[in-house]
């Protein structure tokens, strides 16, 4: 009797362990959910709580202030400057990368001399470590010895110290982002172009459509889902861009290239104002979620119609 029960238990345990019961999906997903919960939900909730505090690490002051941190943002000109820069970085690099990426993808999808080599070479920028990319471009932008100034000289333009100029530093950073991430857009759009059926082009040609008309009225609408995916992923990364800016300009000259991530970092880890830093993180999260949703909804519904 006793041994029979023992056997039954053992059988049940074995069935659980070999994923034979209805618990299986939870056994497989459980560890991931627990860890992911601990390292994402917990910090988010903690950050929201911290954003309601006056919390300076250097004077070890910490008390509840409600929404004061968020109110402070309205009057904080540096916060709005960072917002402006974030917007310029994001919109500027996204538009350029999309246009350039589409052009390159259209060129690359047709067979050409050295197809395989060109497809490998174009990948290198986006695989590269961002810090090394930053240093590489500091070298290229160097006012005295940089390759870019040399090329500028060749065509008769004066030397520039781009990274030290309030006007050009933003553009210089966007150029780096374009160099680094256009290949990513190319890759996605090329996958899209390859998936389009070729007979629709023949149909369009029969109807007398020119190359531009075929692109505008056939290719572009069909490519919408791929464009939106490229946009969402690029948006999320450009919006919270940090590493290259930190290496190349540290937000300078002055605060000319400081974006939200950079300002948030300095607030938290240079000025040790944890509450305000957390509040900025919360605002960024809200904006990221809102805009990602918007891009997905707009472009995908456009596709379905």
């Amino acid at each position: 009797m006793y041994s029979k029960q023992c056997k039954q238990w053992w059988a049940t345990i074995r069935r659980v362990l070999t994923l034979e019961t209805r618990l299986a999906p939870f056994q497989l997903l459980g560890p991931l959910i627990i860890v992911l919960f601990a390292i994402t939900i917990f910090p988010t909730v903690y950050a929201i709580w911290a954003s309601t505090l006056y919390w300076h690490l250097d004077v070890s002051a910490k008390h509840f202030v409600g929404i004061a941190n968020f109110q402070h943002m309205f009057y904080d000109l540096r916060f709005w400057n960072a917002f402006k820069n974030t917007a310029i970085f994001t919109v500027g690099s996204l538009i350029c990368e999309l246009v350039l990426g589409m052009a390159i993808a259209l060129l690359m999808v047709n067979s050409h001399f050295g197809s395989r080599l060109s497809k490998s070479l174009i990948l290198i920028p986006m695989l590269s470590t961002p810090v090394v990319v930053g240093l590489m471009w500091v070298l290229l932008y160097d006012p005295q010895f940089g390759l870019l100034n040399y090329l500028f000289n060749l065509v008769g333009l004066p030397r520039q110290s781009w990274l030290a100029s309030e006007h050009y530093a933003l553009v210089a950073l966007i150029v780096i982002d374009i160099w680094e991430w256009t290949p990513f857009v190319v890759l996605i759009l090329m996958a899209g172009l390859q998936s389009l059926p070729s007979d629709i082009y023949e149909a369009a040609r029969c109807d007398g459509a020119g190359a531009w008309q075929a692109f505008r009225n056939v290719t572009l609408p069909l490519m919408k889902p791929f464009i939106s995916i490229a946009l969402v992923f690029r948006f999320m990364d450009a919006f919270r861009w940090f590493d290259t800016i930190y290496v190349v300009t540290k937000g300078g000259p002055g605060i000319a290239t400081e974006n939200w991530s950079m300002y948030g970092y300095l607030t938290g880890f240079s000025y040790l104002n944890m509450g305000y830093s957390a509040a900025m993180g919360v605002v960024m999260l809200i904006v990221i979620i809102a805009i990602s949703q918007l891009i997905i909804k707009r472009l995908f519904t456009g596709y379905n119609n």
Partner: peptide
Amino acid sequence: ILSTRMAPPILVIVPFYL
């Protein structure tokens, strides 16, 4: 699970650091 990648690092770094 997918959306956990969306969180801006500046949001989660403060709790992690503390």
